[in-house]
Design a protein around this nucleic acid. Sequence first.
DNA 1: TCGTGATTACGAAAAACTTCGTATATAATC
DNA 2: GATTATATACGAAGTTTTTCGTAATCACGA
Lengths: 129, 129
Amino acid sequence: MREELRHKPTNSELRILRVLWDRGPSTVREVHEELGKARETGYTTVLKLMQIMVEKGVLERVESGRAHVYRPIGAEAEAKRDLVTDFMSRAFGGSAAELVLHALASKRATPEELAKIRVMLDKLEGSHE
Amino acid sequence: MREELRHKPTNSELRILRVLWDRGPSTVREVHEELGKARETGYTTVLKLMQIMVEKGVLERVESGRAHVYRPIGAEAEAKRDLVTDFMSRAFGGSAAELVLHALASKRATPEELAKIRVMLDKLEGSHE
DNA sequence: TCGTGATTACGAAAAACTTCGTATATAATC
DNA sequence: GATTATATACGAAGTTTTTCGTAATCACGA
C-alpha cells in the first residue's frame, strides 16, 4: 500500500514529462527541440523548468559528458494514474463511468480503440466474478 | 458545426461550476456553503470568482430579490466534453484508449460502472457497422 | 427613520506558474 | 592558450490565478 505524497505536475511540467516518457532520458537541448515543434519556448525556460523539477524530486539528473541527462523519477503508469485520479475527481466527482462517457463522446474513437477498451473491460469484469 | 472559442475553467472555476451543475442556479451564499464542506474559502473569494466568471461569459446572473442567482451559460455535457478533450490531449496525446486504461486502473470501478461503460461501448460499436 | 444583518462592488495583495536575460563554466578546435 | 560554441546557474520580471479586506448598498424590523 503506497502512501507517499506525489507531485502534481503543472502544465509545463507535463509537457516536459511527456517528452521524456516518449524519448527516454534526454538532455535539455533534446527536450527543447522536441517541444519547439509544437510551441515556441526559450531554451533557458525549458532548462529552468527542468531544474525546478529536479528540486521537486520529479526528475533526476545524471551528468554525462558536458550536458546533463534528465529522466523522470517515478513510473510513467503511476504518474498517469495519478493524473487521471485527480482529473476524474475534479471534473466528475470521481465517477469513472462519467469520465469514460465523456471521453468517448469527445473524440470519435476508432474501432481499434473501442476494441482495446472492450478487452480491458472483459479483463476487469472477469476479475470481479 | 460549432466554432466558438470556449473558455477553459481554472481549478477554482471548476469547483464552482460543479456546485452549480449539481444544485442548479444558486446564490453566492449557497455556493459558498457547499464549497465550505470540502475546503475553507472566504465568502468574498467565492463572490469575486463568480463575478469574474460572469465577465468571462461563463455564468449568467439574474437579480432575484436582494441576492443574485447565478447559473452556467453553456451546457454541462459540452463543458465536460471540452474538459476531457483538453485533458486527454495534454496527458495522453489524444488517445481515448489510453485515458480509459488509466481511468480503470486508477479506481476500482464498480461492476455497475463497468456495465454502464459496456453499454456505451455497445452503442458506439453498433454505430460503426 | 435608524440601525442591523446580509449582500455586492472594488481594489489590491498574495501565491503559483512561466518566461527569459545575463553571467558563468566547460570543452573542443584552431 | 585564445576563441568559439554549447551548457548550466541564478535572479528576477511577467502573467495568471486565488484570496480577502474594506466600503458601499439594500432590505427589513424596531
